[in-house]
Write a protein that binds this DNA or RNA. Structure first.
Lengths: 122, 122
DNA sequence: ATCAAGCATGAACATATGTTCAGGTGTATT
DNA sequence: AATACACCTGAACATATGTTCATGCTTGAT
């Protein structure tokens, strides 16, 4: 049957002090959005592979496409996503575009999440 | 007009040594998928807020819904996603369910990505 | 200038994602 | 036992996402 419109538990059960305390820990909305978007961009197997590969050395779109086993077009689209969040940068050399990781945080994130994932298996 | 079927650049331009070297850096496929899925689960503003809030202290669904300004149902669905990747865990106490971060990696990930995001602004 | 190679992009499509809605579970209180 | 509350879940819906296809763009060679 239909419930209360708000469907949120009554006020006397919400611990206002806890809520207030937790609210202070929240980053401003624009930071939250940026964080979420960054994680979202990291949340695709193809892009994870790209970043892992670039951990070793810079690579051109051509090499990446070959490595990933997908088309250059798909690779280029993914690189665009990664560029949009400044996860990778690139330099042009003649007709080629060489991509590399943008900063050292990316490497740290990948290592940390790998630890989490490996613990989960154990 | 229509191009080559494969649309992948010719072999003589792919640097096979670089590709081989980069390939070695890649985690096994199942780890790649787990990493991507973990990041994907972190890639939503509501879930980011939940995790930031739980950094401070454990909270019940009720408190979280109030904090986020969304319905309990939506909150519960999001918590389910976070549980599926072992990002949060919970304990029952009577009718309430108290959620907290599952391990310390989550905290590290949030801090690291915040550094990345803040650099981007500068 | 013309052509080809490497890369980038726009549109379209199938699939995935997050929310709402309606209802279902389990526990405490009466 | 009956009710109320806190939380959970399945289905449906609108929107977002990633790939493919076709085509532009830019550079280097002829």
């Amino acid at each position: 049957m239909k419930r209360n419109t708000s469907d949120v538990c009554e006020v006397y059960y919400v611990n206002e002090k806890h809520v207030a305390k937790a609210r202070k820990a929240l980053s401003p909305e624009r930071e939250i959005l940026a964080v979420a978007e960054t994680f979202r961009n990291l949340g695709d197997p193809t892009r994870v592979k790209i970043l892992q590969a670039l951990t070793v050395e810079e690579l051109c779109v051509c090499d990446l496409a070959k490595l990933l086993g997908v088309s250059e077009s798909a690779t280029s689209h993914q690189l665009r996503v990664l560029r949009s969040q400044k996860l990778v940068r690139f330099r042009r050399e003649g007709k080629m575009a060489y991509y590399s990781l943008d900063d050292e945080h990316i490497d740290s994130l990948m290592r940390e999440v790998l630890r989490h994932v490996r613990e989960g298996v154990a």
